[in-house]
Write a protein that binds this DNA or RNA. Structure first.
Lengths: 284, 284
DNA sequence: TAAAGTTTTGTAATTTTATTACATTAGTGG
DNA sequence: CCACTAATGTAATAAAATTACAAAACTTTA
């Protein structure tokens, strides 16, 4: 989809001259979209047909079509290329890179989101007797967030960070209960075990995890939260954002499905919170 | 900036033929970007120069340039005039709206991020004897996430969800300690009290909150996480994403500042986590 | 290592596409 | 209804992109 990514991925598959074209474009994508094929050819020090061939190799119809795609890739501001944080980066540099990487990963996740399983999950959730959210490590924070969201709906909901408490909760689960397990990799042993335990008690197990993972295989329903594995040391876990937004979507679907009376309840909770707050007037 | 908007705004200022061009484009913008000037002229039933003149009137250099702008306008999917989730929305509808709203809010947050305070915060963090993260409600999940991130750096770090524990931690804080308080509104009484307590013990208090709020006023340093107040009932708290990313940025800045030996440590933690996981081979 | 084959690249011709200059038409106020 | 202005189209021109083909630059194999 994204041409800039396409270029970066295929970078080593290109011939020498085509590589020159790729470098020229990557070094300044913004100016590339305003150049003619002749200008770009001169810039990359190759012939015009080489540029054209390069465009075709990037799965576009030709140079103008390529520029169109490039323009679209650049539309959200600065390139979405995986620019990794480097030792020499200034505050502005790494801040920008992290924002970009997150935006890019969120955008990718949007394109991949599977509304069919979302819908199924909402179905299951609205009929749940009790909902549990479990995650470990970074995903624990996501589970916590989910708890906070669903708690407001006045439905029986729980979340534990302690692996032992999680186990006990799953052992005690029963028909009508829904257990939502959150894991980026889907390979955390303890979570897979939770899935098996809950399932054997006839609870519904929903996984927000990588499809095809051991955890996914044990779930009744999987909502994919796949994000290209980040090998970069500094790269923040963009997957979390993907998981969080799935929680948001589920919560939204949930309220929509439950209708007006549940929304009234939501208002009531919000009102309750207000009382623990300083009044706006206090602010100077 | 956005050509589609530009067209809609100037719609009534156009001459009859130019209007025909506008209509043709608006009725199917996606196909317009793949047409030549001749095709589009025939479609709108006008001459080619008319199309060209139309493009110039839209503040572009000519037809190809216009197409480029149009492509960029279309890149972010179809823009929703009304971004709010509605009762009648389908799964696809509300999922898309939530993604868009989040992307938009993240982008806005990127534009507003204050790298100067980020830099100061990193300075403070690298010199900290102990770091504490506190938040309540939705922000508790963010604090939890921060804990998880900084814990990997092998620095003394803590986070409590219990308001009483938070109090005790702040009462016992001392010179050299850093307390990071997370709150969207900056009006949670208990957090403001934490700030006052910690400050009186000479601890450094950093707030990730709204500037000008009661909490912000009590902090030594404020990193703004402002996001337009969401009045919409369904609208998920986009602010959280903004807070999370600030944590990401801080953590990244932290590792960069601490240099190579700390990065080695990070690798070690990652390795340790691996052992609690199913091996990739197990996956079928 | 030289010859045959294959791939890559460039030159020049061709075609497509966009722009300009100018003529024509339609519309407007006196 | 005439004169003037604005809008539109026609045809010529210029620019840009693509194609066909030939020349290099590599590989492979004897």
């Amino acid at each position: 989809m994204n041409v800039l990514e396409q270029i970066t991925i295929n970078l080593n598959k290109l011939s020498r001259s085509e590589r020159k074209v790729a470098d020229a474009i990557l070094s300044s994508p913004k100016s590339a979209i305003h150049s003619s094929i002749a200008t770009l050819a001169k810039l990359a020090d190759v012939s015009e047909p080489t540029v054209n061939r390069f465009c075709r190799r990037m799965d576009t119809k030709g140079f103008p079509d390529f520029k169109l795609h490039l323009a679209q890739s650049l539309a959200n501001g600065t390139p979405y290329v995986n620019r990794h944080v480097e030792e020499s980066d200034s505050v502005e540099d790494y801040t920008n890179k992290i924002y970009e990487a997150t935006l890019a990963s969120l955008d990718r996740s949007r394109q991949m989101v599977d509304t069919v399983s979302i819908n199924k999950a909402v179905d299951i959730l609205t009929q749940a007797k009790k909902i549990s959210f479990f995650g470990l490590g970074a995903s624990a924070a996501v589970a916590q967030d989910a708890l906070n969201k669903f708690f407001r709906f006045n439905v029986p909901v729980q979340s534990f960070q302690d692996a032992l408490m999680q186990r006990m909760a799953c052992i005690n689960s029963s028909d009508g209960d829904v257990v939502i397990l959150i894991s980026h990799t889907g390979r955390t042993k303890s979570l897979v075990e939770l899935a098996i335990m809950a399932k054997s008690n006839d609870a519904m197990v929903i996984g927000i995890t990588a499809t095809g993972s051991p955890l996914a295989n044990e779930c009744n329903l999987v909502i994919s939260s796949e994000v290209p594995e980040d090998t970069d040391l500094y790269m923040p876990m963009a997957s979390r954002i993907g998981q969080l937004i799935i929680i948001d979507v589920l919560a939204t679907g949930f309220t929509l499905r439950r209708g007006a009376k549940f929304r009234d309840n939501l208002q009531k909770v919000k009102q309750g919170i207000k009382e623990s707050r300083f009044n706006k007037q206090l602010e100077v």
